[in-house]
């Protein structure tokens, strides 16, 4: 069953082009490891943005704890490896499951108590603050504000590749799998149909028999799992796990910018958003706190004129097959 027959061809082309682009890109910059580093960094932020997009863009759950969830994943994995308590695969799996569980709990509580968007936001913001404060305060376990280092993680087959490229392909693989999976679900399954209904009007969706609660909590579960997974691998990639890497300003703010700039609820949106934000970020790195000013002003203009993001704008005026 296909929900939207119209643009299958164009959309499949886009997906294939995306996959090829990702495969080939690092080869172009093979002797500029810094660029590869930036690209990998962008991939991880893309993964975070995807999770936020599913939560907020599709089901209106304002999770202001994206950085915190990724951070929990990173810290769990990091600590397990540091203490020698497990190998990398088990650590990552455990982190993913744990964060998935936390996210599921938050989603369920939020849905059961019928929290409006703003309360979910406050609730998850509190989680972020708890995370930041605990990771700084519990110095013996977490290494406090400076964090701790992870080195020499064994990744078998990929190990002969340089560090950056290793994690580039790993993150790209996860990213593409997630994108294709999401694409399939959104356009080929009943679940996808449910998402589009909920996006249009939650109350009506409920009235026509969609289990909105279940859709929301399942989204919470899987989006959080994604955060736990990408967060823990991000920790392995950065080789330094510190509170500042997962703070609200470091993760949540750029992620929100990416999603809003690209287009809430779209699949290609985060890609465009991430590309723009990464470029802007690099250009602005020299400006220090002034970056915040530019981010802030940019966000204001975006919200005022392009509330629905670039993809929506392009969709309306140029290419209706965008998704």
């Amino acid at each position: 069953m296909v929900i939207e027959e119209k643009y299958i061809k164009e959309r499949s082309y886009v997906l294939m082009a995306l996959a090829i682009l990702y495969l080939v890109l690092p080869l172009v910059f093979i002797d500029m490891p810094y660029v590869i580093f930036i690209l990998t960094q962008m991939n991880f932020y893309l993964l975070f943005a995807f999770a936020f997009n599913f939560l907020f863009g599709l089901t209106n759950q304002l999770f202001l704890s994206v950085g915190a969830f990724a951070g929990i994943g990173a810290y769990i994995t990091g600590i397990l490896l540091r203490e020698g308590m497990s190998g990398p695969v088990e650590a990552v799996i455990l982190s993913t499951l744990l964060v998935a569980g936390i996210g599921y709990l938050v989603s369920t509580l939020s849905v059961k108590r019928r929290l409006v968007v703003i309360f979910t936001g406050v609730f998850t913001l509190a989680i972020t603050l708890v995370f930041t404060n605990l990771t700084i305060a519990l110095v013996t376990i977490t290494g406090g504000e400076t964090g701790f280092r992870i080195r020499g993680v064994n990744l078998w087959i990929l190990d002969w590749l340089p560090h950056n490229i290793k994690y580039y392909y790993l993150s790209s693989a996860i990213l593409l799998v997630v994108t294709i999976l999401a694409y399939y679900i959104l356009f080929y399954t009943k679940m996808g149909y449910a998402y589009q209904c909920i996006l249009a009007d939650e109350l009506t969706a409920e009235l026509i028999g969609i289990y909105v609660q279940r859709v929301k909590t399942l989204t919470g579960l899987f989006a959080s799992a994604l955060l736990g997974l990408s967060g823990s691998i991000y920790g392995l990639f950065s080789q330094l796990i510190a509170p500042s890497y997962f703070a609200f300003a470091s993760v949540d703010l750029p992620v929100q910018l990416i999603v809003i700039l690209g287009g809430r609820g779209t699949l290609l949106g985060p890609y465009i958003g991430a590309a723009v934000i990464t470029v802007v970020n690099e250009l602005l790195r020299l400006l220090g706190p002034l970056t915040l000013v530019i981010y802030g002003v940019t966000l204001i203009f975006l919200l005022a004129f392009f509330r629905n993001g670039i993809i929506e704008f392009l969709k309306r005026n140029l290419a209706p097959w965008l998704f």
């Binding site: 703010l253 929100q256 809003i260 706190p289 002034l290 970056t291 915040l292 000013v293 530019i294 981010y295 802030g296 002003v297 966000l299 204001i300 919200l303 005022a304």
Partner: peptide, 13 residues
């Protein structure tokens, strides 16, 4: 989001 954006601008500025 609007007020948050303003807050970031003001803070940075």
């Amino acid at each position: 989001y609007m007020t948050l954006a303003l807050a970031y601008s003001l803070h940075g500025g």
